[in-house]
Design a protein around this nucleic acid. Structure first.
Length: 921
RNA sequence: GCCCGAGUGGCGGAAUGGUAGACGCGCUGGACUCAAAAUCCUGUGUCCUUAAAAGACGUGCCGGUUCGAGCCCGGCCUCGGGCACCA
């Protein structure tokens, strides 16, 4: 019997499916382990070999944990709402659901071939009404909650209403948009509309006007993490800033908690660091500057992290979008300021980024008074100050801030250094070090002392107070799209009103066109009768991250129609023990999910404060593209080695037409009509293609499909090979060259069991040597899997199998545990051989072999003998020998004597088990 | 500009501070074969010399700690990734 992987893999995949082998059931007698992959968006292109990398790793870990006696929850589903299906719908009129169905089916088929141990009965898509009902439900919970700063928790909005009725805003410490002040009487006198507007200032899911990333190309707003370099991540369209009223989530209320509990997570440092930067906590001071505009004065609060430099302030700057700009502009400066504001407004985000080096600004005509010195400084307006951060106004210290420095230089403003001996003739001195000068009471202090001293002073004199700011903004939650969750909100007399829970899920209406309406309304406005009890329903939909924010909770209890997750299921599965996915979600999904989970935790719906305990980022598998070089303006192609002699144009060529960088000439002519009569300039009779490592993508013709690998080598080989390629976290190019070696290993393993049709397995007793081979492998696998060092485990397997092959060992006592060890990596062949060995049950639930260290321990240690640090030879000595005995034996040996050659010994250092170093003169 | 991470043969990559290059690919030579495929065996960091052995040099660069450094420390260089007017 040969190793027929096609037959074996098909057979076991269907048996696992029929027997529901990997169905997970809550079982209090076993410890749980929850392993989750970041679920994919089912795109039309299908999976390429890069996608399963993380899935294979998580499957290996899941299977390993099962062998270790854990009750493993390992689910999979689809993040199915999203832009590509909708864009396709706009072009073709095809309902996104149809496209999604088709793509999901294809994904499932591809995933199934790889032999994952998912519990498919728990699978769902984010676009299933049974699921998004709970996304809408969570939104309503947020709508109905506010965040209490003093108890650090979300609370029902009814409590806030009660507080307003009792005492107005008196003594309130809650997260809000604009600070508000009113009495209980005033509150009671508000109209329903006014009350609704006030509460919007406090709700965790709220509607508010804000500067948004508006993408005209997509006709929708985008979240910060959906924009990169001023272009939309999906589609690459330019993005501009625009003020709009949008649904938002008050993520900023959770900034401190999101930051704090990062320390409790087993994530990589780089990922935690990314989140820390994104949250961007900075502790500083708010200081009030009195500003004179003609005869009129206004108090302007600025935020700074360096109050210690306040004696170096030579001007102030306002953000162009700040409400203060109009107020502080004098009549004389009005025209100039308005021209500047117009100039800023028409710039797109992308242009702003491209011109980040250029310095622009305009004088407002007002003068601020430095509260410490009483000195007057001019107030300028410039786009380098952001309206959305701090107070939208700054004090400028050009001597010690590079941005202020550039501005001062451009507009000829004074630069006053306040740190002794620093040189500010060429650039600012930003470092927080040195002795203070020109700074009144701070003179002579070290900068590190001066910072708190200045803060204390400002607070003591009532000039300002300490303040912590965060860069983290509230998440914009509306999208002007069709293919997303509808908001369970309708407008009753203009007041946003939540739908009752009984009306959920609110499903998408049928519409006949998916583009925005002529007057710029979202596509849902096209729906006939998009109303609730006669009132209009909200027409925007939720963003992509809505559905992915709590999906891990739903897998715990996917068919529950009473709750997102039952308390019992939640108590059992708790949170994700191991989450595997790409870093690209660091500042999107992984922040939103943590926020969402903390919110549900506050309300008591879930029992863990953090959703993902351990997180591993698998690297990307890149493609290896091939190129041909066409002589410009012809259909003649020159081989890579000769291309420099000609003027050529580089063209991607499909890698299926290339083998070992040699081009299949006939195949190439047949590839495209325009290449039908292609001529070639060859080197050594062959056409050599150029190559490069690039992202794997259709347009680069470098996509390798996992199905092809499964056809030619089998899923087990694919799985082993992807792990063997290198460390999981590292990005690496796909290269099919090495795959034969891995496949050869599996065949070699098979041949330990069979020679043709003869079964070789015997009941012969293993020798100590056999046991050593086995237990080395057990020890290695045990240690490596826990470190996700799967590549070295595969190597260890190869060594063991080579060992056994050399000695022709086909003993059951050795092979049986080896099959168990192999089963997480290559489950199909392992299952087959497990049954060949006479077992009835699945190998997936066998017991991980017990490691016996004493079997692998050497009796001898190899000592490296060095002279003055240079290793000259090695010697094997019994492990039990004492230091002194080792020293004596080594010194007495012939080899040592030969190297000594009469020189005298200064000292001898013995490192037990390792080395003998002899220092000689 | 700021913050992370990484630099080891022809290639992917191994090495608790202790014989650098495991394992795999590729390449040499060989066995089996009429031949091919498959399989197996052999060699394979560089240089020098050689019949062989033995040497010398080798983990991006420069220094340091150590009996001993790919690994630890300091300073550079290069390449990836993230953030980017966040006061």
């Amino acid at each position: 019997m040969d190793y027929n992987f096609r037959e074996i893999e098909q057979k076991w995949q269907s048996r696992w499916a029929e027997a529901h082998t990997f169905k997970a059931v809550e079982d209090a007698s076993k410890p749980k382990f929850y392993v989750l992959d970041m679920f994919p968006y089912p795109s039309g292109a299908g999976l390429h070999v890069g996608h399963p990398l993380g899935y294979i790793a998580s499957d290996i870990y899941s299977r390993y944990k099962r062998l270790r006696g854990f009750n493993v929850l390992h689910p999979m589903g689809y993040d199915a709402f999203g832009l590509p299906a909708e864009q396709y719908a706009i072009q073709t009129g095809q309902h996104p659901e149809v496209t999604t169905d088709k793509n999901v089916a294809r994904y499932r088929q591809q995933l199934d071939r790889i032999g994952f141990s998912y519990d498919w009965e728990r699978s769902f898509r984010t676009c299933d009404p049974d699921y998004f009902k709970w996304t809408q439900w969570a939104f309503l919970q947020m709508f109905d909650s506010y965040y209490c700063n003093s108890c650090k928790s979300a609370r029902p909005i009814s409590e806030l209403v009660a507080a307003f009725e009792r005492q107005g805003t008196e003594g309130l410490d809650v997260a809000c948009g604009e600070p508000m002040q009113f009495t209980a009487e005033q509150w009671k006198a508000f109209t329903p509309k006014e009350k609704s507007d006030v509460l919007m200032n406090y709700r965790i899911a709220y509607q508010g006007e804000t500067a948004v990333n508006w993408c005209p190309g997509l006709g929708t707003v985008l979240a910060n993490d959906e924009v990169k370099d001023g272009l939309s991540v999906r589609g690459g369209f330019p993005v501009e800033q625009k003020k709009m009223t949008q649904w938002q989530l008050r993520v900023s209320a959770y900034a401190e908690r999101l930051l704090d509990s990062l320390d409790t997570l087993d994530w990589t440092d780089s990922l935690k660091e990314m989140q820390r930067n994104w949250i961007g906590k900075s502790q500083g001071t708010e200081v009030v500057f009195r500003v004179e505009t003609g005869a009129q004065t206004t108090d302007v609060t600025i935020f700074t992290t360096r109050v210690d430099t306040i004696f170096g302030v030579t001007f102030m700057v306002l953000a162009p979008e700040s409400e203060l700009t109009a107020r502080l502009t004098t009549p004389e400066q009005k025209d100039e300021v308005e021209a500047y504001l117009a100039y800023v407004a028409k710039k797109t985000e992308r242009e702003r980024i491209a011109e980040t080096k250029s310095v622009t600004g305009v004088f407002s005509g007002s003068w601020g008074i430095n509260p410490l010195t009483g000195e007057k400084v001019p107030v300028w307006i410039s786009e380098y100050v952001l309206a959305g951060y701090g107070t939208g106004a700054i004090m400028a210290v050009p001597a010690h801030d590079s941005r202020d420095y550039a501005f001062a230089r451009k507009f000829g403003l004074p630069i006053v250094p306040i740190i002794e001996g620093c040189d500010v003739s060429e650039q600012s001195f930003d470092a927080k070090e040195g002795k203070m000068c020109n700074s009144g009471f701070l003179n002579g202090m070290d900068v590190q002392e001066a910072i708190p001293a200045a803060m204390d002073y400002v607070e003591a004199h009532g000039l300002g107070h300490r303040k912590t700011n965060y860069r983290l903004r509230d998440a914009i939650f509306s999208r002007q799209r069709y293919w997303g969750e509808p908001f369970p909100i309708y407008y009753k007399d203009g007041i946003p009103t939540p739908l009752p829970e009984s009306a959920l899920p609110l499903t998408l209406p049928q519409i006949d066109e998916y583009r925005p309406t002529a007057d710029g309304q979202p596509p849902l406005a096209r729906a006939k009768d998009w109303t609730y009890e006669g009132y209009p329903l909200e027409t925007s939909t939720m963003p992509g991250f809505a559905g992915s924010s709590a999906y891990y909770l739903r897998y715990m209890d996917p068919h529950n129609d009473k709750a997102l997750v039952s308390p019992e299921a939640d108590q059992y599965w708790r949170n994700v023990d191991l989450y595997i996915g790409g870093t690209e979600h660091a500042t999107g999904h992984l922040i939103y999910s943590r926020f969402w989970n903390k919110f549900l935790f506050d309300l008591g719906y879930v029992c863990e404060d953090e959703p993902f305990r351990k997180l591993i980022n698998q690297g990307m598998i890149q493609g290896r593209s091939n190129f041909v070089y066409r002589l410009v303006g012809t259909q003649t192609f020159v081989s890579a080695g000769l291309k420099d002699q000609y003027q050529t144009q580089e063209i991607h060529v499909d890698i299926s037409l290339v083998r070992n960088d040699r081009l299949d000439l006939e195949g190439f002519r047949a590839w495209r009509p325009e290449f039908k009569d292609a001529e070639f300039i060859l080197e050594d009779g062959e056409y050599i293609c150029g190559w490069a490592v690039e992202k794997m993508s259709k347009s680069m013709y470098n996509v390798v499909n996992p199905d092809d690998i499964c056809d030619n080598y089998g899923a087990d080989t694919l799985r082993l090979y992807e792990m063997f390629l290198g460390p999981l976290e590292q990005s690496k190019p796909w290269d099919t060259k090495g795959i034969d070696g891995v496949h050869r290993f599996l065949r070699k393993f098979w041949r330990l069991f069979f020679d043709g049709d003869t079964c070789l397995v015997t009941d012969e007793a293993p020798t100590p040597e056999d046991l050593k081979t086995l237990h080395r492998l057990i020890g290695k696998e045990q240690a490596d899997i826990e470190n996700f060092s799967f590549n070295t485990t595969v190597s260890a397997f190869m060594i063991a199998v080579n060992d056994l092959t050399d000695r022709k060992v086909s003993k059951r006592a050795i092979l049986e545990p080896m099959v168990i060890l192999l089963s997480p990596f290559a489950p199909h062949i392992a299952e087959e051989l497990w049954h060949v060995l006479g077992h009835e049950d699945s190998v997936a639930f066998a017991q991980f072999p017990v490691y016996r260290e004493e079997l692998t321990v050497e009796n001898n240690c190899t000592y490296a003998v060095s002279f003055n640090g240079k290793t000259r030879f090695t010697v094997d000595l019994p492990k039990t020998l004492s230091r002194e005995a080792v020293q004596e034996t080594v010194l007495a040996s012939d080899q040592t004597q030969r190297y000594l050659e009469g020189k005298s010994i200064v000292k001898v250092i013995v490192v037990p088990g390792k080395i003998v170093n002899i220092v000689i003169k």
